[in-house]
Design a protein around this nucleic acid. Sequence first.
DNA 1: CCGCTAACTTTGAACGATCAAATCATGCCT
DNA 2: AGGCATGATTTGATCGTTCAAAGTTAGCGG
Lengths: 331, 331
Amino acid sequence: MAEKVTITDVAKAAGVSRQTVSNTLNSPEVVREETRKHVLEVIERLGYRANQAARQMRTGRSRLIAIGIEPDGDGISGSWADRFLHSLSETAAQEGYRILLYTAADDHAEIATYEDLLGAYKPDAFVLTGTHHDDLRASWLLERGLPFVAFGRPWSDLPDARHPWVDVDGAAGTEAATRHLLAAGHRRIGFIGWPPGSGVGDDRRAGWARALGGQDLSGLQRSVEDGITAGESAARDLLAADPGVTALVCASDSLALGALQAREPGRPVAVIGFDDTPAARAVGLTSVHQPLGEAAAACVDLLARALESPDAEPPSAHVLLPPSLTIRQSA
Amino acid sequence: MAEKVTITDVAKAAGVSRQTVSNTLNSPEVVREETRKHVLEVIERLGYRANQAARQMRTGRSRLIAIGIEPDGDGISGSWADRFLHSLSETAAQEGYRILLYTAADDHAEIATYEDLLGAYKPDAFVLTGTHHDDLRASWLLERGLPFVAFGRPWSDLPDARHPWVDVDGAAGTEAATRHLLAAGHRRIGFIGWPPGSGVGDDRRAGWARALGGQDLSGLQRSVEDGITAGESAARDLLAADPGVTALVCASDSLALGALQAREPGRPVAVIGFDDTPAARAVGLTSVHQPLGEAAAACVDLLARALESPDAEPPSAHVLLPPSLTIRQSA
DNA sequence: CCGCTAACTTTGAACGATCAAATCATGCCT
DNA sequence: AGGCATGATTTGATCGTTCAAAGTTAGCGG
């Protein structure tokens, strides 16, 4: 049985009132130095910890941040959640928050979950992942004025989103990858990406195009759904159509793994993937690495800041982090 | 602003008392059928959800399950957390529990976190992962009679652990892998594993040995630390030492990926890994697949059962799940 | 028509914290 | 010495729920 120490126990042991103990922790400046020290000592000695539930009832704040985790599609490009969650949890703990998990099949289910959570656990904020065009979740949260941060840009047509977000600059990543290939002497560099329309995919394609400047890019790219097999056939097709191509930049590691297998003996082709997943490390695939730890920390920071001062929302609460290139054998 | 509906609001709207509303939800059998229906209707209409914090204050139960996530070593063999967490969260939600995350660098830090959490959020139970010999966390929790379940056997010398656990039968996995190779005509089948002493590693080796019956196994195995490069050199060494070996069973996908690279042209060697990680899928590696979803569900079930009846601990609260073999090109 | 039981419903009290307002010292100025 | 601001601490009320006990209603036998 966990021995429970209440604020009253501490107050009695220290010979002061409940409120003085509470003040010692929450508004130390109103307590006399001497008293404060003494109370802190007793708190330490008894191992007192403020009960969150009781605190929440009075203050309305739970010090809980909710985040949804997805079923994780093919498992290759999706395994960033691990690192992100770890860092999120760690940073949150430092700021005095804890992470509450939930799952939801789609946007509607996720909104239903919000209602559930807000009724029961009342998390102070939400972290959204996998943002997309016309994200119902974001609008729902915005309408109700609930604090949240998106990991991923809103990709809306608006010049500036009305909510905080943190993202990794995908275009900068593919641009760096392409420049790396150019520096290695490659001239015709292809791109295997996803069908136009997804913000993330279009962004990654744009970085590649930017690095190649004014070149004629028609014929140098293919668009397919994510996956190894799709990547393989797209790469095979592209390589066959243009014998001059010596390198490929891909929108994901899945596609890149496919591209690797599309190579034929006698024709070396450099390949660069995106996400620096365990699979990339395993096969020696050069890949764009996302700073997930920093991204998670940035999410927590934005939320913590917003929660401290609910009135003055920082105007430019948008963080765009630069990725780095992890160079291995494949390029 | 999230509109908050309290039990009193529902009571007023339904023309009954608080307690009747409470009973409708918690002890439906004591409420008259007619009243119950009416109250449920009003609850639905107002979108009422019981406030967890308030409930917890009275009942002492938070309906929160805490789980620690690790920094995730080399990232290849470690990416099971994703799937496990997703399933854990989903199953827990169905039983009315939510998942609270925490991180800790080592056993001592983890225990400090327990004290923190128990003082503040008071989770009803814990899920331990990465269990090992002389696990301080398990003893600490046991001493205090706190409900928990370990994902992974305790690997102690005792015949039976004194706490519930869920695990995947690693020996059965390597045994199935070995039998699969035997059925394909292989006769000399090697094993690349970890140094003796780790419960998980020894268990996986045992399955391979069991499948090979009375064969002389000396010279057919190598023990190295986990990792691709280590796996490669171990495999190379083993294959050179015994020209009759035509297949290798490995204790992890990392080792297996190394073994794949150790093959020389002209000498086909079948390789089977363990964990069915994304990397295995990527390179077409046959691998032993752990039923993580079921494992997570089993964890929640055990906990939920234990929490319902805190007195009568089920005697055989141990679940050993059989893995399956995901067959790909490599074997 | 009273009394008793069974079925159902309502009424205080409590969980542990914080907010708001009241109380108690203390020092300074006139 | 009295008045008064200032600082430090204490006291009562409250958040929303459930427990325990008390209250109400109806049914039924004598």
